[in-house]
């Protein structure tokens, strides 16, 4: 569920305190905290970034430097479900480009885009450690392997 984008909830503040307790200095928890608050908002807006920076005693640019470095922290809105399709070597060899094309056709988006209804975003990802079932993708938190167009048509049917 999506909650007010730029306000931290009490539950979140409590969870943040718990994460910070795992480290000797607060800023060390910043990646865990960004992931936590992103879970409820899909992405890290400027406002929420500033709020997290304030809570952890970091400057905004210090935190943004971290936020923009990592692949799984989104600084732009993404869809409800992010589809991460592996583009590394074995998946490439086993036909990931064809799979990408079926997904793009079915969802009428290009790589990196979000569907008009905000349901899906398609992004490339490095090897998912599922190479013995290549080509593979993560749909949200679910790992799916041995992809072929039949599977794609079932999981992500044409609208």
């Amino acid at each position: 569920m999506l909650i007010a984008k730029d306000m931290m909830t009490t539950t979140e503040l409590y969870e943040i305190a718990k994460l910070v307790a795992h480290y000797p200095v607060a800023r060390a928890a910043c990646i865990d905290v960004l992931k936590l608050v992103q879970k409820n908002r899909r992405y890290i807006s400027d406002d929420i970034l500033a709020e997290v920076a304030r809570i952890l005693g970091m400057s905004i640019s210090e935190l943004d430097e971290v936020a923009t470095f990592y692949n799984l922290i989104y600084r732009q809105p993404v869809g409800e479900t992010v589809i991460l399709l592996c583009d590394s070597v074995t998946c490439w060899m086993m036909g990931r480009n064809k799979i990408a094309k079926s997904i793009m056709d079915n969802l009428t988006i290009k790589d990196g885009e979000t569907t008009a209804d905000g349901k899906y975003t398609l992004l490339p990802i490095v090897c998912l450690g599922h190479c013995d079932h290549a080509p593979a993708m993560l749909m949200g938190q679910t790992l799916v392997g041995d992809l072929d167009s039949t599977k794609i048509n079932k999981l992500l049917p044409k609208a």
Partner: peptide
């Protein structure tokens, strides 16, 4: 952190 392409042993 297993991310070396082609590697699926630690998972």
């Amino acid at each position: 952190d297993e991310m070396e392409p082609g590697t699926f042993k630690d998972r």
